[in-house]
């Protein structure tokens, strides 16, 4: 049965983007992934570019991103999303291409591909979900886990002497001339969601200018991996993640 579009006598003021499928998301309650999926697809909808957009899903909790995003998509091997996106964009130069990756995917196993994709200035959007943990495999330490952070493979807390320091890969990438727009956002409040969506919008627009890579880090939560309620996770994020991963543009094109 088709659901009625509008309930009699009521006006639609907000709706799910057409480019999100009806498949219920598998993400844990309060998880940032779902929010980022939604605003990404809202931008595709609003720009009317569904027929010109190809996405790349990572290996991580968002491995099934293509179940939710109603655009042509490819599922990459763990860490290789930006190489796959490079291949797509090179043979389809007039297409909007985005890669969507977690911190283990982008900043550990895929670091080489990440650095070189941005260094070549591939005209793609890279969305980087930094939740400081490996969500999918059950809460192991990520390259971005904070010092002292307890995870299933750092049960006594991350120690610099053993595990090195949390990797601020976004700052590192901003150094590269191939990076055109580099920003760090979050989606833990309504205001933050709006800002993050603006960054996504700008990145899609920049793609047509072919000036280089757009890179958006989203400082995200992982209530399950962090063993917190969604509200606790969002508070913890502000208190602990933001000081080390400050929000804002790191490299913005001159207007």
């Amino acid at each position: 049965m088709k659901e009625p579009d509008v309930i009699e006598g009521m006006e639609v003021v907000y709706r799910k983007p057409q480019t999100l499928t009806a498949t219920p998301m598998h993400y844990c309650p309060g998880c940032s992934h779902g929010v980022v999926h939604k605003i990404l697809m809202e931008v595709v909808d609003e720009m009317g570019i569904q027929d010109k957009t190809v996405g790349v899903a990572p290996v991580g909790c968002s491995v099934f991103a293509y179940d939710y995003m109603n655009v042509d998509m490819q599922e990459a091997a763990h860490g290789r999303a930006s190489a796959v996106a490079t291949g797509i964009r090179r043979v389809l130069p007039d297409t909007y291409v985005f890669a969507y990756q977690g911190d283990g995917d982008l900043a550990a196993i895929g670091t080489g591909e990440t650095v070189h994709t941005v260094n070549r200035g591939e005209n793609i959007l890279m969305v980087f979900i930094n939740n400081g943990i490996y969500g999918m495999t059950g809460g192991q330490m990520a390259p971005t886990s904070l010092l002292g952070m307890k995870t299933s493979t750092s049960p006594y807390g991350r120690e610099a002497a053993v595990n090195g320091y949390p990797l601020r890969i976004t700052e590192l990438l901003a150094q590269l001339p191939g990076a055109y727009y580099v920003t760090r956002q979050s989606v833990h409040t309504t205001a933050a969601v709006r800002k993050c969506k603006k960054a996504i919008e700008a990145s899609f627009r920049y793609q047509t200018e072919k000036r280089g890579t757009c890179f958006i880090e989203v400082v995200a939560n992982c209530p399950s991996g962090w063993k917190m309620t969604p509200n606790e996770a969002n508070d913890w994020l502000e208190k602990n993640m933001f000081p080390y991963y400050p929000i804002g543009d790191i490299k913005a094109p001159k207007q």
């Binding site: 490819q74 091997a77 190489a83 291949g87 797509i88 090179r90 080489g112 591909e113």
Partner: peptide, 22 residues
Amino acid sequence: VILQAESELAAINMVYGAAGAG
């Protein structure tokens, strides 16, 4: 398109992307 990749690992995944794009 002829592209020198940063490794064979990256190269084969670029092949994956390009082949997947037809």
